[in-house]
Amino acid sequence: MTPANSPSDSPTDGDPARRDRSDIIAGNWVDRWLPAPVRPYARLARWDRPIGTWLLLLPCWWGVAMAGHGSGEPVWMLIWYGVLFGIGATAMRGAGCTWNDITDRDIDGKVARTATRPIPSGQVSVKQALAFIALQCLVGLAVLTQFTWEAIIVAIASLAVVAIYPFMKRYTYFPQAFLGIAFNWGVLVAGALLMGDIAPQILMLYAAGFCWTMSYDTIYAHQDKDDDILIGVKSTALKFGDRTRPIIGGFMAATLTLIAVAAWMHGVAGPLFWIGLAAAAGHFVWQLKTLEFDNPKNLIMHFKGNRHAGMLVTAALALGGITL
């Protein structure tokens, strides 16, 4: 078995139990295309698992799609803002994951799914990881320089939540709530960027994103519930238990309702909006009916499926102002 503190280009090699449950996907583009010294950093930033970047980016796109209506900005500029948010989401999600792995390095080493991550497996030191955070934050700062001062101030305000989030699982059964606060901040940034302030409809859209995160991250947390009990950390998966299905159903219903209210307030609740929102609702119904809370493969499939739901909402908000 590969020693836990020795570097390895294939961290899932060795112990079969760890390999089978590891969240590192062997043979992906990181393994195929990146030089060996870069791979551990790519895994720290989760470049091999882009779903988290999508879930951070999509609320940004919701904000651009909705607030872009009536902003006076040409379509090409809105698309450019979408690209900038994409770069920023990739950099800051990577920085956040790196910080999370630093703070959780002792816990991760005790959990089968995370024991092969770069820090607990010894591939990257804490000092190296901190330097990598700084590099990624510089990329995020470069993106912010393209935004207005109002948007920059709102964006910087999110850093406090990002900093404390990894510690919340030690003290509360609702770390998912703190993730929801942080992961949907892009809605507020987009509102400040395109409207000059954080209007009530932007707050409604932000609340919708929060409820969405509570649903999908509770699904994700069910993968680790047995390990969480053993090592003494908390999650909504443990708190909700057998009531998870109806509770996340309530969060999904709240997500759709708040999006509808936000679109109505902003004047983009046209026919195409309702078609897109209905499609997202259908996706949520499918999730609720087919979730298997003791099947890790089923859970990760449904967690990743939320990218499609988020895309449908983006399209609904972008096209909602078009009159047929």
Score class of each variant (00 low, 15 high):
G282E: 12
A260S: 15
R32P: 02
P120Q: 11
A131K: 05
T148P: 05
R39T: 06
R39F: 07
G186M: 13
D294K: 15
F284N: 08
D226K: 11
A45M: 07
T53G: 12
P200W: 10
N184Q: 11
L44N: 03
L277Q: 07
L312K: 03
P74A: 13
T172K: 01
Q146F: 14
P200Q: 10
G276E: 05
L319M: 12
Y206T: 04
A142T: 12
W33S: 13
M252E: 12
P120N: 10
H69P: 03
I156Y: 10
A155N: 07
D48T: 06
D9P: 01
C97L: 13
T257I: 15
P271M: 12
G122R: 06
M168Q: 13
V268Y: 00
D20R: 14
E292F: 02
W212M: 13
A4Y: 04
R245Q: 13
W61Y: 09
L317V: 02
H283Q: 14
T255S: 13
R307L: 08
M66T: 05
Q176N: 11
A269I: 00
Y216D: 05
A157R: 07
S6E: 12
T244K: 02
V268E: 01
Y220T: 09
K297D: 14
P35S: 14
G320Y: 05
P59F: 05
F293D: 07
L299G: 06
K225W: 12
Y173M: 06
T257W: 15
M252H: 11
M214E: 06
V38M: 15
Q136P: 01
A281G: 15
A253K: 01
S71G: 11
G276I: 03
V233K: 00
T114N: 03
H308R: 11
S8W: 05
V313I: 15
D108H: 11
G276S: 10
G180H: 04
I102H: 07
A278S: 14
F251V: 03
P296N: 13
V143K: 00
A192C: 12
D224T: 04
F240T: 00
A254K: 05
L238D: 00
H222V: 06
F183S: 03
W62P: 00
A281T: 09
M195Y: 05
N100E: 09
D106A: 14
V261P: 01
R18V: 05
I25H: 11
T218H: 04
G282S: 12
L272M: 15
K110E: 14
F147W: 14
A65L: 06
P296A: 14
L312H: 02
A208R: 00
D31Q: 07
G305Q: 03
S121T: 04
K169C: 08
D15S: 10
P200H: 09
M214Y: 01
T255Q: 13
V189D: 02
A42N: 08
A237S: 15
V75G: 15
A4V: 07
G249Q: 07
L256E: 08
T98E: 05
